[in-house]
């Protein structure tokens, strides 16, 4: 973007304007580097000045990201970032508030705050790095780890059924829900851009490789030669189809369940046509259930993008309405709003 400095001279912002002077300290080879780069490359194109951006995070590897952004930022406490970000957004609807966290931060200890921020439709861009493991505490299973996963805390295999983050967000009434992955900067940038442009709570799940504690968790779907057959790229207004020859597609059965089919067997007109803007979240939910784990064809892209009044917008409207109704608040009158008497 072009902005003005103090002398009124047009200045073109660049990636470096959004990079802080702090040394990035994730493990070499971590997927987080790619996500940070995508965010920093995108920032100059959003038309927002660095000082209007606030990055709020909880605890975990992903949550270190705000330190690397030359914006305002809070590295807070485990799980609470959506609540703290809600405070920032309510206090200052003019700001652009991003929430950064991992699967443990947002779906385990902070699950409550995530779902409530989404249902309230606070204007937040929430990016959840999903690596299906606890990294910072050195390798325990997470709420998105597959059942049976052997980790330090589950030597005989995890007994926990995992969350499907997209289904959780949709169930929490999120008005924007998308999925992307750390191997495709262009796709990440597009998803982040759309999430930023969305007015309301936007949830983006990013499949992210933890090369130390859960290396290759997404290889089945993200290896270059696997992607065509394993990633279902959701495009608004288009039939849902994929495959090297685009020979595979998604249909809906009588129960509203999305099924993968060979197009030649059912015919192209049976395919589901994706509609991001459907008010009813059932279609998006069905699509989110196609894969319960990233070892089968997995939709990426925007599941849902609908308009709903934002919490801070409605709150602001109540304040304006209150002044219209009762006039601006006067302390002296407020104190006398109950019966008074004089003592001489």
């Amino acid at each position: 973007m072009t902005t003005s400095d103090d002398q009124g001279v047009g200045v073109k912002l660049a990636r470096k304007d959004f990079q802080s002077d702090q040394e990035v300290r994730w493990c070499p080879g971590c997927g987080d580097y790619g996500i940070l780069a995508a965010i920093q490359f995108l920032m100059p194109d959003l038309g927002v000045k660095p000082e209007e951006m606030v990055f709020v995070s909880g605890i975990g590897c992903a949550a270190r990201l705000p330190y690397y952004m030359n914006t305002y930022g809070i590295h807070s406490i485990h799980g609470r970032a959506p609540a703290i970000a809600t405070g920032v957004a309510l206090a200052r609807p003019d700001l652009h508030v991003w929430v950064i966290g991992g699967d443990g931060d947002m779906l385990s200890i902070g699950g409550n705050h995530l779902i409530h921020a989404l249902r309230r439709n606070v204007n937040l861009t929430i990016v959840m790095f999903n690596n299906q493991i606890y990294g910072l505490t050195k390798g325990q299973y997470s709420p998105t780890s597959e059942m049976g996963k052997v980790t330090k805390s589950t030597p005989f295999g995890s007994l926990d059924h995992p969350f499907n983050p997209i289904s959780v967000a949709l169930g929490a009434e999120a008005s924007f829900v998308a999925r992307t992955h750390d191997m495709d900067r262009k796709h990440m940038m597009e998803m982040f851009r759309r999430a930023h442009e969305h007015r309301g709570g936007a949830f983006v799940e990013v499949y992210q490789n933890c090369n130390v504690f859960n290396d290759g968790a997404f290889d089945t779907i993200l290896n270059k030669d696997a992607r065509a057959n394993m990633l279902i790229d959701l495009k608004h207004g288009e039939p849902v189809r994929f495959g090297t020859e685009r020979e595979l597609g998604v249909t809906m059965n009588e129960y509203g369940e999305a099924k993968i089919v060979r197009i030649e067997e059912v015919g192209e007109d049976r395919l589901v046509v994706h509609d991001e803007h459907r008010r009813d979240p059932s279609l998006a939910f069905s699509l989110s259930r196609i894969a319960d784990h990233p070892n089968m064809p997995t939709p990426v892209g925007i599941f849902r993008d609908v308009e709903r009044p934002t919490y801070e917008g409605e709150l602001q409207a109540q304040l304006v309405h209150a002044v219209e109704r009762s006039g601006p608040g006067e302390l002296a009158a407020l104190l006398r709003s109950a019966p008074t008497w004089e003592v001489n």
Partner: peptide
């Protein structure tokens, strides 16, 4: 007393209520 510009939020839990106040203070 919203005509004083007071914003109130009934938070999802006690922790969030404190978090919202901290975020507001930062802002």
């Amino acid at each position: 007393h919203k005509n004083f510009g007071i914003k109130t939020l009934q938070a999802e839990d006690e922790i969030a209520a404190a978090g919202v106040a901290i975020g507001a203070a930062f802002a």
